Each structure stands twice: as C-alpha cells, then as structure tokens.
Computed example of a mutant assay.
Amino acid sequence: MIKASADTNWLPLFEALASEVRLNIVRLLAEQPMNNKDLASHLKLSGAIVSMHVRKLQETGIVRSEMIRIDGGTHKMNTLAVEAIEILFPFLKNAPRLFHEISVPIGHYNDYEIAPTCGLATTSKLIGQFDDPRFFLDPERVNAGILWFGKGYVEYKLPNFLLSSQKIEEIEISLEMGSEAPGINRNWPSDISFILNGTELGSWTSPGDSGEGRGTYTPTWWRDDINQYGFLKQIQINANGTFLDGQKMSDIGLPELAIERNQWTLRLEVKEDAAHVGGLTLYGAGFGNYNQDIMFRTYYKAAAED
C-alpha cells in the first residue's frame, strides 16, 4: 500500500492517476501481468503511447516491470506493485466545538430579593421609579436592558437542552456587570457571587461603578451621572473547576453540579455579610459597552465521538 498525504510532494502520484488511459492500464494489470504490446492491443493505442503511460506509472511505484522467460523467450512484463493507495488528509486540529447557546435577557429573572439603591430600565424608558424594589415585579421588567441593586440577588432559570446522547464538557457564562454606587464611583468595590444550581462557584470583586464617559450602547436619553458600562466577565466550568476570565476561581467543577436536571438556575448575588457590599449592575443588550444579554453556552460531544 502507498500512503500519500495531501501535499505537493505527492503531486506526481496524483497526476499519474489523473488519466483515463493509465486507469485502464491499472484495471488490466489487476487482472493479469501484461507486456506493453498486449496493453496496446487491448487499449487500441500505439506502442509508443502505451510505453509513455506505463513509464509514468512506474515512476510513482504503481507499476513494476521485470523481464520474465515465457515459452523460451524473454518478455518485459508489467505488474501492479501495490494493492491500494491511501491518501491521508491533514487533521483538523481546531475543529469547531459543539454547543447549545441561550441568550437570557437580564429582565427574565424568575426570583429576586434586593435592596436599594435599585432600579431597572428598558432601552427607551425607566421602569417605575428609582429605589423602589416593587418595580422589580413590573411585567415590563422582561424588557429591561439594565438593572441594579445595592445588595441581594437576582436568579434566572435556564433550560437544559442536552440530550442523553450528548456528554457535557463545559459550561460558559458571559455577561457585562459592575458595582452599584449612588450615582457613579470608579472606586466602589463589590463582592459578587456566582451560584449555579444552588452551588456557589466563587466570587469576583468588581472594582467600581464605571461612568467616566458614556457606554458605547447606552441610550442617548440615559443620564450621564448614573451607571454607564461594566466589565465583560466570562465564567467557565469544566471537570477541572471554575475559571473566571481564564483564571481559576474555585475547585467546583461539573461533577459537583446537578447538571442532569432539565433546568438550571443561575443566581447573581451580593451578600449582606460580604467584605465589600457594593451592589450589582447588570448590563444587557442596548446598554453598556457590549451589546449582549447573559450568554449561556453548554459545550458537549456526541456519544459517537467517544
């Protein structure tokens, strides 16, 4: 067998096969050894043309020619030198990963418990009034593009679309967030905890509530002296633990989470007993510097890949 790879070094081999005449020669020699005269007779071609085609097949190792004694005479017989040719294509090292993706609007929380300062707004108007937690129950909250509170939590329910034949490899959560200061304050630390399926993954200390300049996507009607943009944070959970922006945050990994459920819960919380109770601001599509809601991805591989 000839094992060829898909590169230019093997072009002579590919060119040797790129001929109907030479393929017919291979077919005839697969039946029995033949000399050039017999090949020419079967192909109805001149001896000179057949000799040229046989030579190309010889040069690439497909055909072997040798002198053989037959009926008292010596004949130059052609035989196939290989049984097969295998072409090895380059391995795709960075094959796209399979995943399910859900974009969760920040107003689609299913539970909350918050304390002022607080509020929420769509891209066109404030929902209710500032610092009144009751408006977190307003039906229009589902259209919110920004929300904020001084302490407490919001919790989201997420569907688990994985099939029994799909093995989860990693969970990835991406969102824009920051602290919540009265007005704005770049030096306003806040310890924000991430809790998935009731298990705390870890926490991140937001440095402040940014507002030096307007957010890239913040609506023009939004006041300059309140929350403008946050920090894009990416959480990854796999078998090795939980990572925040590529840095390990905790040893909590997939085995510690109840991922077999049909729905998962994600809670974002500023605890009352945290070292830095600086609140939380969530930026969704239409606000801040990143035009996205909470992005939730589950990477998996199909059972057939095992």
Rank of each mutant, 00 (worst) to 15 (best):
A16Q: 05
A16G: 06
L17G: 09
A18C: 11
S19Q: 10
S19T: 11
E20G: 13
V21D: 12
V21A: 06
V21F: 06
V21K: 06
R22A: 00
R22S: 02
L23P: 06
N24Y: 10
N24H: 12
N24M: 11
I25C: 00
I25A: 00
I25W: 00
V26K: 08
V26G: 09
V26F: 10
R27S: 02
R27N: 01
L28N: 12
L28F: 14
L29A: 03
L29S: 03
L29E: 04
L29F: 01
Q32D: 11
Q32W: 07
Q32H: 09
P33T: 06
P33Q: 05
N35D: 09
N35S: 03
N36E: 08
N36Q: 06
K37V: 10
D38W: 04
A40E: 04
S41T: 12
S41F: 09
H42E: 08
L43Q: 13
K44W: 05
L45T: 03
L45Q: 07
L45K: 07
L45R: 07
S46R: 01
S46W: 00
S46I: 03
S46F: 04
S46P: 01
A48K: 15
A48L: 12
A48C: 11
A48D: 14
V50W: 10
S51A: 15
S51D: 13
M52G: 13
V54H: 02
V54Y: 03
R55P: 05
L57V: 00
L57M: 02
L57Q: 01
Q58L: 14
Q58F: 11
Q58E: 15
Q58V: 15
E59Q: 14
E59W: 10
E59M: 13
E59D: 14
T60W: 09
T60V: 15
G61F: 04
G61Q: 03
V63F: 05
V63W: 05
V63Q: 06
R64I: 08
R64H: 14
R64L: 11
E66N: 13
M67W: 08
I68V: 15
I68D: 11
R69F: 10
I70L: 12
I70G: 06
I70S: 09
D71P: 05
D71M: 09
G72A: 09
T74M: 02
T74E: 03
H75A: 12
K76Y: 11
K76P: 08
M77W: 00
M77Y: 03
M77A: 04
N78H: 09
N78Y: 07
N78W: 05
T79H: 03
L80K: 12
L80N: 12
A81Q: 06
A81S: 11
A81Y: 05
A81V: 04
A81P: 06
V82G: 01
V82F: 01
V82L: 01
V82K: 03
V82Y: 01
E83M: 07
A84E: 13
A84V: 04
I85W: 02
E86R: 04
E86Q: 08
E86D: 08
I87S: 09
I87E: 10
L88I: 08
L88D: 08
L88T: 09
F89G: 02
F89W: 02
F89A: 02
P90T: 02
P90S: 03
P90W: 00
P90N: 01
